[in-house]
Design a protein around this nucleic acid. Sequence first.
DNA 1: GATTAGATGCAACTAATTTGCATTTAGATT
DNA 2: AATCTAAATGCAAATTAGTTGCATCTAATC
Lengths: 139, 139
Amino acid sequence: MNRYESILKDVGLKRTDIRLRMLNIFMNSEIALSHHDVCEQLGDGYDKVTVYRNIYTFVNKGVLHETPNDGRSAKFACNLQDVSKTGAHAHFICEICGNTFCLQFRNSSELSLPGNFKVNHLSIVAQGVCSECDKNEKY
Amino acid sequence: MNRYESILKDVGLKRTDIRLRMLNIFMNSEIALSHHDVCEQLGDGYDKVTVYRNIYTFVNKGVLHETPNDGRSAKFACNLQDVSKTGAHAHFICEICGNTFCLQFRNSSELSLPGNFKVNHLSIVAQGVCSECDKNEKY
DNA sequence: GATTAGATGCAACTAATTTGCATTTAGATT
DNA sequence: AATCTAAATGCAAATTAGTTGCATCTAATC
Ligand SMILES: [Mn+2]
Ligand SMILES: [Mn+2]
Ligand SMILES: [Zn+2]
Ligand SMILES: [Zn+2]
């Protein structure tokens, strides 16, 4: 039983080809992926509705999380070992390529907000230029 | 010349009925509004495409800003006097009603991130329960 | 009042996501 | 190993969000 098979077993989901492939895609991506991105990487022969359903199944099971996003479509990324499981990590969105990165940076959850807001979860989103885009920028 | 008329004049946009109404709607809303929300408040007789175009016109002119959002559609809110103009303010998203609130809370822009990220802009998004939803919660 | 850049309205389009339902299959049970 | 069934998949169709093109209209300037 490989890494992906045991994730599926752990969260109580059936072992299917598309799920193994989706896990492989997400676990090897440095950036958060949209539904469209995943379909592209899967190639032909997989149903887009099944991909949607599995993304949300994974989110519900705590395998993936939805990231803050630029643009119009939702993006998702793996929940990594320690940091992401809690959800309490920062994100970086590149203003040039639009890629979203999960950062190994814990949000300090101490923040007193004005008003009667009960804060459960704090997220920090940084925007700027990723290293790849910084390299390619023209002067 | 009223408040809304002078905003339009200031940013160099023509005074039209739908724009005045849109400004009125945004300026009197405590929460960020989606295109759909705005259309609903406008009622019949206004074209949805014109609403889209005016939202983005206002964003470009610095009258509105797009907020981080839950869910699938973009949300927008007024740029308030001091704080929001810089963009450097925090947001609160209610996990129950889904409403997004702009907070009068400046983000500290001091944050050193791991990796080679050039940070231009930092945003803090808090999630939790808004006061309205807190009131109505069943125990 | 005439001019015109900018604004609006309508129709048609694309993209993103959801729903319903019939069929298939993984994994448990016998 | 054959049987069973809840869960998963695939296809089609619907819905929702946002965009584009173009003809018409009008606010602001002269
Ligand atoms: Mn993340
Ligand atoms: Mn805001
Ligand atoms: Zn980039
Ligand atoms: Zn709420």
